[in-house]
Design a protein around this nucleic acid. Sequence first.
DNA 1: ACAAGATACCTTGTATCGCAAGGTATCTTT
DNA 2: AAAGATACCTTGCGATACAAGGTATCTTGT
Lengths: 113, 113
Amino acid sequence: MKTQLKKGTLDMCVLAALSQADSYAYELVSKLSQGMDISEGTIYPLMRRLQNESWVSTYLVESSSGPSRKYYKLTEAGRRELETMRREWQEFVAEVENVLRGGPAAATEGAQQ
Amino acid sequence: MKTQLKKGTLDMCVLAALSQADSYAYELVSKLSQGMDISEGTIYPLMRRLQNESWVSTYLVESSSGPSRKYYKLTEAGRRELETMRREWQEFVAEVENVLRGGPAAATEGAQQ
DNA sequence: ACAAGATACCTTGTATCGCAAGGTATCTTT
DNA sequence: AAAGATACCTTGCGATACAAGGTATCTTGT
């Protein structure tokens, strides 16, 4: 999957996943990797960013099959941010599709061929 | 408009615009800026990339209202690449929407709340 | 008991790309 | 001659995805 296209969407995808159920980074990677292809080197800095913005909070849970898991939980601010991101995403997609359709943003004047 | 979201889509948008009519960088900026918000500092390196990939060719046209314009024209390879990008874009959007809908890529197992 | 593998955390360095800021040259208008 | 629009371009910065590598825990096979 094209790396550049993902820029700016992974935060939203993670927040969306967390809006359904709390999760931990390692699990998020394996779940999101099915369709989105996200790697560990991406998720850990990303989760830190989300936490710095206070969009998620964390708590530790001991696991019966390995080391403790750091669960992330969406905060109220995170829920609001997710809605904002959704809106921006939809607007962005609409604008790109508009250009692809040859909408008003396409160059039409004074050109040849 | 969110900077990160544009990454990887501007090439496609420019190729799409050129698929309708030849154009030059300065004009592409003013046309695409209406909806997409693209700046000169972005377009010139971008056009060079497209040319390096042989997706566009260029020709000079003298203007009656300023310096000569460097027109860009989509090549056959460019047309094929545009179709590839379109496909990848659609697949990508579909996958993101899937995650937003809480699709199979969302974390559901073993979480709390 | 010990090695191997899975689970789970993390950091460092690299590449890419969009953009603000700045620079140059041409042509028209005042 | 000066000012402004047109049109080209480069440099340096910030953001982010990722490969590669590292550490610790827990289970399983021998």
